[in-house]
């Protein structure tokens, strides 16, 4: 967005193409994520990587097409737009540290020796029958 003022005045008339395109792309990305998850038969790891890339793309669509993230409130200065963008990028960094960091740290070491996963799965199978009896 070279000149924020331009993009603002462009919105004064007609059909808001930016929004329409953003909406259509969002729907497509959601559908693709579904297809990858249920129809492709990729390995779990591949599926997770692809659907998370789609999620980040879709979030970027919202931020850029709907939320006017890069738009600056003052004339002839990109300060606010850049601040807003930098803020969200730093938030993304913190988000990845929190999520990936926690999953990695909590899953390492004791995670390897933690038989909980297996136990609970076995218990699930056992409990399955009981649950159905209860509710049907």
């Amino acid at each position: 967005m070279a000149n924020p003022q331009d993009s603002l005045s462009r919105e004064h008339g007609g059909i808001p193409w930016k929004h329409v395109i953003g909406y259509i792309l969002s729907i497509i990305l959601t559908a693709l994520a579904l297809w990858v998850t249920f129809e492709t038969g990729f390995s779990t790891r591949t599926i997770l990587i692809i659907i998370f890339i789609f999620a980040f793309l879709q979030a970027a669509l919202q931020l850029l097409m709907f939320m006017h993230m890069t738009e600056s409130s003052e004339k002839k200065s990109k300060l606010t737009g850049n601040t807003q963008t930098g803020n969200i990028l730093f938030a993304a960094f913190v988000a990845i540290v929190i999520v990936a960091g926690s999953v990695w740290v909590m899953g390492a070491g004791h995670g390897k020796h933690d038989h909980h996963k297996m136990d609970s799965k076995m218990e699930d199978m056992k409990m399955d029958g009981d649950m159905k009896m209860e509710h049907k």
Binding site: V94, A95, V99, S102, V103, G107, H116, D128
Partner: peptide, 23 residues
């Protein structure tokens, strides 16, 4: 974003911990 990330981290760490409940 930081707030929801913490909730996502929690959910993902506890992903397999269904205990006696349904999956």
């Amino acid at each position: 974003i930081a707030l929801f990330s913490t909730l996502f981290a929690t959910y993902l760490v506890l992903m397999y911990r269904t205990g006696d409940g349904p999956t």
